[in-house]
Computed example of a mutant assay.
Amino acid sequence: MNEKLTTVTHDRGCPNDAIGRLENVDHDPSDPNPWVALYLDTSVPFNECAKASILVDVSSRSRQFLFPLIRPLCRLTICLLKVVKTLIPNAVHSSWLLHHSIYHGLRIFVSPYANHLIMRHFHIGSELLAFVANNTKGVDMELSPLRPRALKDLVADVFLKHDLNIYNFIIEINRQLNEKELEFEAQEELDYSCITDGEFPIEPLPNGWLNFLDLESAIEIYTPAYQMLLTDADFWRASNSLQLDETISLYATTLIGDHRFLGLVNNRHPIIPESTLGTGHRLMLHGLSAECLHAFLVKKKREQARQQSAAPQLAE
């Protein structure tokens, strides 16, 4: 296959042409474009390039025509695999095969917009955990950040490590707080140094003639693959980790002293697990929540920088 890499760079730093595609749509008041309306709306904090990538991705023909066929077939596969896994829970499992199959699938079939969002997600997840760790008094956390620069980096068990990092983080930070009888508390001075204001160092992504598949269709396809090639316990843990959006968001907003963001969290109540059948859609919501929380922190970082720059002038 002749594979090319995206080299389009928008003037605002976006590594693909998503922003340009939306901004070049002509507005017809009698037939307004719903994706342009959502792109221009600023009610929800969102990285501009990531938002454009999502909207171009969900408005694709793949999402419109293939996704309705892919989802029921993949959910039926999950049900069948659940029966098999009940009888032989750990007969077939290979994290190596899972991550290599995901890598090759992303490289060959998935759109550059979807791949851009996937790669961003691991950087964002690492920075959100670092923000909580750096601003929680009384804890000393040793983190394992995931910073993939190219799709090839994902083969190093990155998807599995992403879930493990979240659980290990929650266990360790709460163990330390409980031992010292401390709690998460709002801080007057917050450290935003770990939050990237701009694009992450991600290499150009494949943009061949087969790179057409949208993000949610790809997620639906890989959910049964995840179930088949991981142990039953690993799959359940990965699925249930999606509801930890609420937990991490509570940590961050408590430290900031502003809980308005929690209204944007859709994966909630981790004590009561959801069915694994909806894992694909919940994973989309997980990515959305992470993007919004990160954008919220970027906004707070900019506000802090403005206040600090204005302080010397006021003193004069």
Score class of each variant (00 low, 15 high):
residue 1 M to Y: 13
residue 1 M to K: 12
residue 8 V to Q: 08
residue 8 V to A: 10
residue 8 V to L: 11
residue 9 T to R: 15
residue 11 D to C: 11
residue 13 G to N: 04
residue 14 C to S: 09
residue 18 A to F: 08
residue 19 I to Y: 02
residue 19 I to G: 04
residue 20 G to P: 01
residue 22 L to Q: 06
residue 22 L to V: 01
residue 23 E to P: 03
residue 27 H to W: 14
residue 31 D to V: 06
residue 31 D to H: 14
residue 31 D to Y: 14
residue 35 W to D: 09
residue 37 A to F: 08
residue 43 S to M: 03
residue 49 C to R: 06
residue 50 A to Q: 02
residue 51 K to W: 02
residue 59 S to I: 06
residue 61 R to K: 14
residue 64 Q to W: 15
residue 65 F to G: 04
residue 66 L to R: 01
residue 66 L to P: 04
residue 68 P to W: 06
residue 69 L to W: 09
residue 69 L to I: 14
residue 72 P to E: 05
residue 73 L to A: 14
residue 74 C to W: 03
residue 75 R to I: 07
residue 75 R to A: 02
residue 78 I to F: 07
residue 80 L to P: 05
residue 83 V to K: 15
residue 83 V to E: 09
residue 87 L to S: 13
residue 88 I to T: 13
residue 90 N to R: 05
residue 96 W to Q: 12
residue 102 I to H: 01
residue 109 F to A: 09
residue 117 L to M: 02
residue 118 I to H: 06
residue 125 G to A: 05
residue 126 S to I: 02
residue 126 S to L: 00
residue 127 E to G: 00
residue 137 K to F: 08
residue 141 M to A: 05
residue 142 E to C: 06
residue 143 L to P: 04
residue 147 R to V: 11
residue 148 P to L: 10
residue 153 D to E: 01
residue 153 D to S: 09
residue 153 D to R: 06
residue 154 L to Y: 01
residue 155 V to Y: 07
residue 156 A to K: 12
residue 158 V to Y: 02
residue 161 K to H: 08
residue 162 H to E: 10
residue 167 Y to E: 10
residue 169 F to H: 00
residue 170 I to K: 06
residue 171 I to C: 15
residue 175 R to C: 06
residue 184 F to G: 03
residue 184 F to W: 00
residue 186 A to E: 10
residue 187 Q to W: 00
residue 188 E to C: 10
residue 191 D to T: 04
residue 198 G to A: 07
residue 204 P to E: 02
residue 205 L to H: 09
residue 205 L to K: 04
residue 207 N to Q: 13
residue 211 N to D: 05
residue 212 F to I: 15
residue 212 F to T: 12
residue 215 L to K: 08
residue 220 E to L: 06
residue 222 Y to R: 05
residue 228 M to C: 11
residue 228 M to A: 13
residue 229 L to T: 00
residue 229 L to Q: 05
residue 230 L to I: 01
residue 232 D to A: 15
residue 233 A to E: 13
residue 234 D to A: 08
residue 237 R to V: 10
residue 240 N to E: 10
residue 242 L to R: 03
residue 245 D to F: 05
residue 247 T to E: 07
residue 248 I to Y: 03
residue 250 L to C: 15
residue 250 L to F: 08
residue 254 T to K: 09
residue 259 H to V: 06
residue 260 R to P: 06
residue 261 F to S: 04
residue 261 F to T: 02
residue 263 G to E: 13
residue 265 V to G: 06
residue 272 I to Y: 11
residue 273 P to S: 03
residue 274 E to C: 01
residue 275 S to T: 12
residue 276 T to F: 09
residue 281 H to I: 13
residue 287 G to S: 05
residue 293 L to P: 01
residue 296 F to H: 03
residue 296 F to M: 04
residue 300 K to I: 00
residue 302 R to E: 15
residue 305 A to W: 02
residue 305 A to M: 12
residue 305 A to Y: 07
residue 307 Q to L: 10
residue 309 S to F: 12
residue 312 P to D: 00
residue 315 A to H: 09
residue 316 E to P: 09
